[in-house]
Amino acid sequence: MKVFMARDLLQTNAGMAQRNRGVFSRHNILAINLISSPGAGKTTLLEKMLDALAGEMNIAVIEGDIYTSRDAQRLEDKGVEVIQINTAGACHLDAGMIAGVLKEMPLEKLDMIVIENVGNLVCPAEFDLGEDFKISVLSVSEGSDKPAKYPLIFRQSRACIINKIDLIPYTDFQLEQVIDEIKDINGNLEIFPVSATKGDGMGAWISWIRDMQKGKSRSAGE
């Protein structure tokens, strides 16, 4: 006997993500999902974002990490709510893990939730968490070939941050070429070359994300 199923392998996650999306919407919260290889600079970017934005809006952070809570500790003295999820070996966060911690969060008070996914460009691209959009972070020290090797994440993102541009003079990283390649993969992508540590380009990124947050809270009033 042959039994036809047409069952999506990510169906359970997709249902859960949809529920999270509803929660974010009801509370007018902009939720973003930061994805990169290990060490591209997600936590550093977050530190700088919190310095720039925590005074004007209420932000909470969900830190995904395979085993440790180091990144969460780095963010704690920024005076925002930080929730740690240890995935116990799993290479990505899934929507169920996010649903589990949303219950613990002061949703009424929040304007934005930033999720730092596990350092990995492959698997997190596949798992919808219910976020408004994904942000991929690529760093100069990883070399120029990441977009070609991992097109899915660039396709799935709304914006891409190219971090550590302060290192360009010391590498063979071809910024213009990488930007062109990323645009070939996804012509709708916003691209922000920055140095999170030195500050170059951070103004444009911060003001874009601020506008996205405002857009979300405005559309919620309609």
Binding site: M5, A6, R7, D8, L9, L10, E126, P147, A148, P151, R155, E181, K183, D184, I185, N186, G187, N188
Partner: peptide, 23 residues
Amino acid sequence: LKYSCPQCVSGRTSIVEGRELFV
């Protein structure tokens, strides 16, 4: 990896096939 339109050169394209993952 040229996902832009070969006919009108627009970068705004959507995926019709290639994202399947089902039994």
